[in-house]
């Protein structure tokens, strides 16, 4: 500041180096600054390329697929038989029904258990129990899906087969399950989505202001009445977000389902049947020696596009819910 004044006055001024023009910082630092800005910018926009590439790959190859197979067959026929040759059939419904069956079963198991765990953690657990339970949930969330797939084969499948063996009540009701069944996948995916529901719902429950709980308790409500009538309604959009994300994850889950549910694309609602989901079809088809052309290969991308559409819609929905509860919070 003092130098500014002198430059206005009579003191001699060194005009070679402006004091606070851009050149006042040494050239090396300025160059590095500009360079790094560019580098970081590229890092930032790279995700846009990734997203564009995903959409382009799925769309472009789906268009190729539909030059072999009519959209009417794809969207309205109910037989999926993606083999090389003339007797291939490409009606997506068996894959969609398999996916939805597994997702519904997983939701039936994972959502209530996950929410109950979240309520227990947020509203009841003592710090000691919390300190034990939270890491358990985190570990469960960190286990790779291939490990769950192995677990489904080694542990859950025998249990399901035992429970539906000839002569049992469930066996009489549904029929007898083999090594692979939708029920295996439902149970294991239910376990896999539980931590998602728990962690997001717990966050939402914890963000309900303490003074609302106090108001309810001071009116003579029990803890459970407070949870049910005050806390849960206030956290409802966060809980909804956790549910939607969990279902979206269940739809996108691949390895555990591939290993547990089988490889038969079949239009059924019976949980003891072996089925195939959209994801399992993609994994199974590509792990074989498929030629990289023709409708069989391209069908991967058509199914992938359908899968992408399902999960994309659910994720957008979940983000809506999350935004709403963030707004309530502030």
């Amino acid at each position: 500041m003092t130098r500014t004044k002198t430059s206005e006055g009579t003191a001699p001024v060194d005009r070679g180096v402006p004091l606070f023009g851009r050149k006042s910082i040494d050239v090396g630092a300025r160059g590095a600054d500009a360079l790094m800005r560019g580098v970081f910018f590229l890092g930032g926009v790279f995700v846009l390329f990734v997203a564009a590439a995903i959409v382009w790959v799925l769309l472009d190859n789906s268009v190729g697929f539909f030059s072999f197979v009519s959209p009417v067959e794809f969207f309205f026929h109910d037989v999926w038989h993606a083999v090389e040759g003339a007797n291939a059939q490409y009606g997506i419904w068996p894959l969609v029904s398999g996916t939805l069956l597994v997702a519904a079963g997983a939701a039936l198991i994972g959502l209530p258990l996950g929410l109950a765990t979240a309520i227990y953690l947020a509203e009841y657990a003592s710090p000691r129990i919390r300190g034990f339970l939270k890491p358990v949930i985190e570990v469960l969330a960190g286990i790779p899906s291939i490990v769950f797939g192995f677990f489904a084969l080694a542990v859950i499948s025998p249990l399901v087969q035992g429970a539906t063996a000839p002569g049992t009540f469930l066996g009489g009701l549904f029929g007898n399950a083999g090594v692979f069944s939708a029920a295996n996948a439902m149970i294991v995916v239910g376990i896999m989505v539980l931590p998602i529901v728990t962690s997001i719902s717990e966050d939402a429950l914890r963000s309900v202001p303490q003074h609302l709980r106090e108001a309810s308790l001071a009116l003579g409500a029990t803890r459970w009445e407070t949870v049910r009538n005050v806390v849960l309604p206030s956290a409802v959009s966060g809980v909804a977000a956790s549910f939607v994300l969990a279902v979206s994850r269940a739809i996108g889950e691949t390895m555990a389902v591939t290993m547990a549910a089988g490889t038969q694309a079949k239009l059924t609602a019976n949980p003891v049947d072996a089925i195939q989901t959209m994801t399992a079809f993609i994994a199974q088809k590509t792990s074989g020696d498929t030629p990289h052309q023709g409708p069989g290969f391209l069908s991967l991308f058509a199914v992938g596009a359908a899968l992408f559409a399902f999960t994309f819609i659910m994720n957008v929905l979940a983000q809506r819910f999350v935004r709403r509860y963030r707004e309530v919070e502030t």
Binding site: V47, L48, V50, A51, A53, I54, V57, L58, N61, L245, S248, I251, G252, E253, T254, T279, I282, A283, T286, L300, F301, G304, L307, F308, T311, F312, M314, N315, V316, A318, Q319
Partner: peptide
């Protein structure tokens, strides 16, 4: 927004991306 959506894309779709690209 793109990052949030990419995080929700099933891993098998990334496989398709890798295969094609």
């Amino acid at each position: 927004t793109t990052i949030a959506n990419l995080a929700g894309v099933p891993s098998v779709v990334y496989g398709l991306l890798g295969l094609a690209i």
